[in-house]
């Protein structure tokens, strides 16, 4: 096992260009202003990401993508996490795109989403309305797992009843979705497998987004505490705080390694299940810890709506539930590594 866990030059270049784009479009002030507007998603940014090819990096060329790998897509997610950019990347470019790719179907250029509760960690085929679906309000294609008398099927719909709900995460809102007319995309084992792979891919790549969140929360907090003075000194010179930030840094170091390993595993197909379980369980908690520390260590300003810390906290907390809570991933791991209760 010799997965490459460092970033290649190509990956660093990609990171730089995505970061540039996000600096122009997803500043904290812009993201904050947008989240209570009529359109919480930044569709212009989403279009630009598509134009630069960032939304189809891991999709094979013959299916309409860039023919790179999950490693590159993971780098984009780190950057999106760093700015909690309100784009339907995870629903469309990760979850829906994974279904199409596994089935060998060309990936459509429309925004798509996978109609499952965003908290799903294992394939469930049901019928009727689905609650708390991510990235649905801006989707024009819906992949729906349906339970039929003939077994599980994946359906494709080009319209749905989408009811936005008030969401914990302001930058990736969820909605309730009901689909009435659809066509069959896959049946039986193919359908089950495609859904399973999509959820695994989503959980594994979400870890990279979580690394981005944790990194941003840590370094913004460090910057603030270097400037903020109380008791005649920079607050960041108090050891009680320095030690908390050092612990957070240590967590970030391990989270990055786990997330890189999951991205690499998803790229090569080796050791995927363990890699994803470890990354999802670890990075979820690290991101939440970093975001909670960011709020606390900013003091009163961290508790205000006007300061962006809450955007990261809400994203981190929602991400912790998304695609399986850490305890679900640990339970999966218990089976995978034969450490049963």
């Amino acid at each position: 096992m010799s997965a490459t866990l460092i970033y290649s030059e190509v990956e660093e270049d990609l990171r730089a260009s995505v970061r540039d784009l996000l600096a122009d479009h997803a500043s904290p002030a812009a993201v904050l202003a947008r989240c209570e507007s009529d359109q919480p998603y930044d569709l212009e940014l989403w279009r630009l990401l598509g134009e630069m090819g960032a939304t189809t990096l891991h999709v094979p060329e013959e299916l309409g993508g860039q023919g790179a790998s999950m490693r590159e897509t993971a780098v984009v997610l780190e950057e999106l996490g760093r700015s909690v950019a309100p784009v339907p990347f995870l629903g469309s470019a990760v979850l829906a795109s994974a279904v199409f790719t596994v089935l060998g179907e060309p990936v459509p250029s429309e925004t798509a989403t996978l109609v499952v509760p965003f908290s799903s960690w294992q394939p469930v085929f049901s019928s009727g309305p689905v609650r708390s679906v991510a990235d649905a309000t801006v989707a024009s294609l819906f992949i729906v797992p349906v339970s039929t008398p003939d077994g599980p099927e994946l359906h494709l719909a080009s319209s749905a009843t989408v009811t936005p709900v008030t969401s914990l995460d302001l930058t990736r809102p969820v909605a309730d979705v009901t689909v009435s007319e659809s066509t069959v995309l896959a049946r039986g084992a193919d359908a089950s497998n495609a859904l399973r792979v999509a959820l695994l891919t989503g959980a594994g790549l979400l870890a990279s987004e979580q690394v981005g969140i944790a990194e941003r929360c840590l370094f913004d907090t460090v910057a603030y505490l270097r400037e903020r003075h109380q008791f005649g000194r920079a607050v960041g010179s108090f050891q009680a705080l320095k030690h908390r930030l050092a612990d957070l840094y240590q967590e970030l170091v391990t989270a990055r390694a786990a997330a890189r390993y999951a991205a690499d595993a998803l790229a090569t197909g080796e050791d995927v299940e363990i890699a994803v379980a470890v990354a999802a369980a670890h990075c979820s908690d690290v991101a939440v810890h970093a975001a909670e520390e960011a709020v606390q260590l900013h003091g009163g300003i961290g508790m205000t709506w006007e300061h962006p810390a809450h955007l990261f906290l809400k994203r981190a907390k929602a991400d912790q539930l998304a695609l399986g809570t850490p305890d679900r991933h640990r339970a999966a791991l218990a089976e995978l590594v034969d450490l049963r209760l």
């Binding site: 391990t254 989270a255 890189r260 470890v278």
Partner: peptide
Amino acid sequence: HDRLLRHWVDAEAMRLAGQRLRQQ
């Protein structure tokens, strides 16, 4: 069991971080 699995995850993440460090 819960503690064991948490530590398992942490240990694996540490191991990977060591691997990443050596690659750097």
